[in-house]
């Protein structure tokens, strides 16, 4: 069937809408004035320098990085066994387990954050970092369970059985045969999980505390205080970072299959 012109127009519209704002952020980031007038009249790199000079951004970047890596790692360590159980076995309550682990996607992030804040208070003082780590780990389970089970499903159980029949025990077979074959799924889950955590606002909004804040939250508070292009510059850096990550992931893994 021949694709007509207006269909192509819709593609143009889609990408115009999706990517246009990014182009504008890029341009604004290099503006010379301290306001967001568009188009900017001069060229300057000062806003990029400002990112590095703002201690709050540096600190919160590291917080976000550690929380992202930590929460993703923990949720994978807990999640991969669940994925394995779901794919390889049939058991009572299986669908309940499956639903539970995808529930964090259905429950609004804001509600999750709010409920955790209220709940943690019951136990008295919980370190901010611990709270953040627990909160972020919980919201990453959908990725660590579902995405890894996709790659498990593609793996023929016969391969594993063969290893077992050749004398390996179950655990060895899992480590030597199954895990390596899941690597693209694990890597995809890791990247998705990390990015989800790194960009999370609603959960962090409630769980950040004295002296500890995540990068998105510190961006939000910066915006309240200043109306200069620093956020545009920082966003530019983050977008470039995402482009590299996405390109890498897409080349290596075909990330779009997992979303």
């Amino acid at each position: 069937m021949k694709t007509s012109r207006w269909l192509y127009f819709s593609v143009f519209l889609l990408y115009f809408f999706l990517l246009g704002p990014f182009v504008i952020i890029f341009i604004a980031a290099f503006g010379a004035e301290s306001t967001l007038a568009f188009p900017p009249t001069g060229f300057s790199l000062q806003w990029f320098a400002r990112i590095v000079e703002t201690q709050q951004f540096i600190d919160s970047f590291w917080t976000s990085l550690w929380i992202g890596l930590g929460a993703t790692a923990i949720s994978l360590m807990f999640g991969i066994p669940v994925a394995y159980a779901l794919v390889r076995f049939n058991f009572k309550g299986m669908s309940a387990v499956e639903t539970l682990f995808s529930a964090p996607i259905l429950v609004p992030g804001l509600v999750i954050g709010f409920s955790m804040l209220n709940f943690f208070v019951l136990f008295g003082r919980i370190e901010v970092m611990t709270g953040l780590l627990l909160g972020h780990t919980a919201i990453l389970f959908p990725y660590s369970v579902r995405v890894t089970s996709v790659s498990l499903r593609n793996l023929d159980p016969a391969v594993e059985e063969a290893a077992v029949s050749l004398g390996a025990n179950r655990l060895r077979a899992f480590m030597l045969v199954v895990l390596p074959n899941m690597r693209s799924g694990i890597a995809a889950a890791f990247i998705l999980g990390f990015i989800t955590s790194f960009n999370n606002v609603p959960v962090s909004l409630f769980l950040t505390g004295p002296g500890i804040t995540t990068l998105p939250i510190s961006m939000l508070s910066y915006m309240e205080y200043y109306f200069d292009p620093t956020i545009a510059a920082l966003s530019t850096v983050l977008v470039i970072f995402s482009i590299l990550l996405v390109q890498l992931a897409e080349r290596v893994l075909g990330l779009s299959r997992f979303i």
Binding site: L19, F22, V201, V239, E250
Partner: peptide, 15 residues
């Protein structure tokens, strides 16, 4: 094209 679609998803909502 799909990787371009994913790009916004990978950037935080504030940006």
């Amino acid at each position: 094209l799909l990787s371009l679609v994913i790009l916004p998803l990978m950037t935080n909502a504030i940006a």
